[in-house]
Deep mutational scan, measured.
Amino acid sequence: LVRYRTISKIPQITLNFVDLKGDPFLASPTSDREIIAPKIKERTHNVTEKVTQVLSLGADVLPEYKLQAPRIHRWTILHYSPFKAVWDWLILLLVIYTAVFTPYSAAFLLKETEEGPPATECGYACQPLAVVDLIVDIMFIVDILINFRTTYVNANEEVVSHPGRIAVHYFKGWFLIDMVAAIPFDLLIFGSGSEELIGLLKTARLLRLVRVARKLDRYSEYGAAVLFLLMCTFALIAHWLACIWYAIGNMEQPHMDSRIGWLHNLGDQIGKPYNSSGLGGPSIKDKYVTALYFTFSSLTSVGFGNVSPNTNSEKIFSICVMLIGSLMYASIFGNVSAIIQRLYSGTARYHTQMLRVREFIRFHQIPNPLRQRLEEYFQHAWSYTNGIDMNAVLKGFPECLQADICLHLNRSLLQHCKPFRGATKGCLRALAMKFKTTHAPPGDTLVHAGDLLTALYFISRGSIEILRGDVVVAILGKNDIFGEPLNLYARPGKSNGDVRALTYCDLHKIHR
Rank of each mutant, 00 (worst) to 15 (best):
77 I>S: 01
158 E>N: 10
347 T>Q: 07
432 A>C: 12
144 I>N: 01
79 H>E: 05
241 L>T: 04
363 F>C: 09
404 D>G: 02
73 H>D: 05
419 P>R: 03
366 I>N: 01
264 H>W: 04
141 I>W: 14
340 I>E: 01
168 V>W: 13
256 M>F: 09
232 C>G: 12
86 V>R: 01
199 G>F: 01
328 M>Q: 01
118 P>M: 11
253 Q>W: 06
334 G>Q: 08
191 G>S: 09
363 F>R: 13
208 R>I: 04
358 R>T: 05
155 A>G: 14
425 K>Q: 11
104 Y>K: 01
341 Q>I: 04
432 A>I: 08
68 Q>A: 13
392 A>E: 07
75 W>V: 04
291 A>D: 01
270 I>G: 01
336 V>Q: 03
366 I>V: 06
206 L>Y: 01
245 W>N: 01
372 Q>T: 13
368 N>V: 08
287 K>N: 01
105 S>D: 02
397 F>V: 08
373 R>A: 04
105 S>Q: 15
222 Y>I: 05
216 L>P: 01
353 Q>D: 15
156 N>L: 12
445 T>C: 12
71 R>C: 09
213 A>Y: 08
353 Q>M: 03
111 K>L: 04
90 L>S: 04
341 Q>R: 04
235 A>E: 01
274 Y>A: 01
73 H>Y: 10
238 A>K: 01
401 L>R: 02
242 A>E: 01
189 I>F: 14
306 N>K: 01
280 G>I: 01
123 G>Y: 15
196 E>M: 11
289 V>R: 01
295 T>A: 15
256 M>V: 12
88 D>S: 01
349 R>D: 15
67 L>F: 15
106 A>M: 08
161 S>D: 14
228 F>N: 01
447 V>E: 03
124 Y>L: 14
199 G>C: 12
128 P>K: 05
203 T>L: 10
348 A>L: 15
217 D>P: 04
72 I>L: 08
335 N>I: 03
161 S>W: 06
145 L>S: 01
287 K>F: 08
251 M>R: 04
369 P>C: 04
208 R>E: 03
105 S>P: 01
111 K>R: 06
121 E>A: 14
405 I>T: 04
103 P>Y: 01
412 S>P: 11
404 D>Q: 03
386 N>G: 12
169 H>R: 05
245 W>D: 01
415 Q>K: 11
350 Y>W: 09
434 K>N: 04
228 F>W: 04
358 R>I: 01
187 L>I: 14
116 G>Y: 07
74 R>E: 04
204 A>T: 05
80 Y>C: 11
406 C>L: 06
352 T>V: 08
164 G>V: 13
197 L>P: 04
169 H>Y: 10
285 K>N: 03
265 N>I: 15
266 L>Q: 01
307 V>M: 01
131 V>P: 01
299 L>R: 01
131 V>W: 02
304 F>H: 04
